[in-house]
């Protein structure tokens, strides 16, 4: 019942162009990116979007490649919505929301070819680097999707992996003293647009998320879209869909600029 009253109130405000936190419809909340705070991880990043906070860490191990891609490294993305982040999160294995989030981010990283997985091959068919990207929500105030995606990207951008070589006997040797950056090809940026009534708003906060009809999340790379996920139990017209994507594309350019400034890539 509360969401219904909230929704009515929010629709009233939106009709006069106001959002609950005073932002414009296409404004992102302030972005904060803090990298390398986890010493034991190969890479890490804490990302804040307004009051939403997520942390991502990258760990590596040497494993065997998948049979259909014998010369490519392995990328695994996992997300946990910890009870520390919200009164509505419960301990236990990832629920459908956490699984969806991890899979959408995984597709974004994979399809943008952010990391040249071929360069993570040590011995074709035998040994490759496995990259484990673990994302943990720490404070949920809406749009965990974009916050987590950015955390994952920032963590990968700042990761340093030990050098691995193959000796004469064909054994894999890891030199932990010599580290190198991951083979980064580009930076994918994920933006979520929410629809409330007939209004489209970027980067929904929790209050907005609770009353929104539908969400469209898109990941962009070089101005092209590489992942889309429509979420929520309502529909969108074709016109609304394309409008969402155009807005997301614009915002992705803006966020990319921020990421490049903070991390100093490119």
């Amino acid at each position: 019942m509360i969401p219904k009253i909230k929704r009515r109130q929010m629709l009233d405000m939106l009709s006069s162009g106001l959002r609950v936190d005073g932002r414009g419809l296409e404004d992102l909340r302030p972005v904060e990116i803090k990298c390398r705070s986890v010493n034991n991880a190969e890479g890490s990043a804490e990302v804040r979007l307004g009051k939403t906070l997520a942390i991502a860490g990258v760990k590596t191990s040497i494993g065997t490649p998948f049979a259909d891609t014998p010369d490519m490294g392995v990328l695994i993305v996992n997300a946990e919505f910890l009870p520390i982040a919200s009164p509505s999160f419960e301990p236990g294995p990832p629920d459908e929301n956490a699984i969806e989030l991890a899979r959408v981010i995984d597709r974004g990283l994979r399809r943008s070819e952010m990391i040249d997985l071929r360069q993570l091959c040590i011995l074709p068919g035998k040994a490759v680097w496995e990259l484990w990207v673990d994302i943990h929500a720490l404070n949920h105030d809406g749009n965990l999707m974009d916050t987590s995606a950015l955390a994952a990207v920032a963590a990968l951008l700042t990761s340093e992996v030990p050098k691995a070589m193959v000796n004469e006997k064909g054994e894999v040797i890891v030199n932990k003293n010599e580290k190198q950056k991951l083979p980064i090809k580009c930076i994918p940026i994920t933006i979520t647009v929410a629809k409330i009534g007939d209004k489209l708003l970027v980067d929904p906060c929790l209050d907005e998320e609770e009353v929104a009809d539908v969400f469209l999340t898109a990941t962009f790379v070089d101005d092209k879209v590489c992942t889309i996920q429509k979420r929520g139990e309502k529909g969108l017209t074709e016109e609304e869909t394309l409008k969402c994507l155009r807005v997301a594309q614009r915002k992705a350019r803006e966020l990319l600029k921020i990421v490049k400034e903070v991390i100093g890539y490119g």
Binding site: A218, K230, L236, L245
Partner: peptide
């Protein structure tokens, strides 16, 4: 989609497309 109401209820993309291509894909799908 719900064809009579003209509302898209599932949209996922896995792969790189320009927005113009996406627009074409959506009209093909519709």
């Amino acid at each position: 989609m719900m064809p009579n109401r003209g509302e898209i209820t599932l949209l996922q993309l896995d792969g790189v497309l320009r927005l113009e291509e996406l627009e074409k894909a959506i009209s093909m799908a519709t």
